[in-house]
């Protein structure tokens, strides 16, 4: 009996080659699957620990006072680590944004869809170029604003209009809109 253990590489398995699935194969699969599940269960907390932590998620909203922003210029505030453009548009800028034919746009979207009803003078955008993540210029009236009077990205020359819609590549999409709401006429809450 003891000699069997020394002579057969698979003592007690009771099968030869070509028998098809055996109890040993089954046990191997179950053990392997169990080990894989265990390794996954150990790996997941480590991987998930790299996701935003609770204190980062807690910084989810910021209030902005609109009163000090003069017509024709904008400010940049920080929300979740990202720059947010809040710009006070002039009547001419609003008209330019509203009069554009949707067919001329790279990503067609009407100006009305990008501002809050009754607050057309305020445009609030995530100030990150949709090309490769640079911050476009154009909040200050003295900044280069590009041909369409909105924003101009210094990295690769993308241009946005006064509604923050891309008019000239290489950026493929309009500037993103953050979630926000008017608390009253001179105060918004972003996030």
């Amino acid at each position: 009996m003891a000699d069997t253990a020394a002579h057969s590489p698979h003592p007690g398995a009771g099968h030869g080659p070509g028998d098809g699935a055996t109890k040993r194969d089954f046990l191997k699969m179950v053990a392997g699957a169990g080990a894989l599940v265990g390794a996954g269960a150990i790996a997941w907390p480590l991987i998930d620990s790299m996701n935003p932590s609770q204190d980062v998620l807690a910084l989810s909203s910021v209030e902005v006072n609109l009163a000090p922003i003069p017509e024709g210029s904008g400010i940049t505030v920080l929300w979740q680590g990202k720059p947010i453009f809040v710009r006070h548009r002039t009547a001419a800028e609003i008209k330019a944004a509203e009069d554009v034919k949707l067919g001329d746009l790279i990503e067609p979207q009407s100006d009305a869809d990008r501002v809050k009803a009754g607050h057309a003078q305020w445009i609030v955008l995530i100030g990150i170029c949709t090309h490769l993540g640079c911050i476009p210029l154009g909040n200050k009236p003295t900044d280069p604003r590009g041909e369409w009077g909105g924003w101009f990205c210094p990295c690769h020359g993308s241009q946005y209009d006064t509604s923050g819609r891309v008019r000239h590549g290489p950026a493929p999409l309009n500037l993103y809109l953050p979630p926000y709401a008017f608390e009253n006429d001179t105060k918004i809450k972003i996030g």
Partner: peptide, 27 residues
């Protein structure tokens, strides 16, 4: 990845690992 080796920050960064970092307490 979440620890700050600075005498002003170390203790608090460990507490942050315990409270705020996902699964930080477990790790």
């Amino acid at each position: 990845m979440n620890y700050a080796p600075n005498s002003m920050l170390a203790f608090d960064s460990v507490e942050r690992i315990m409270r705020d970092v996902n699964w930080g307490w477990l790790i």
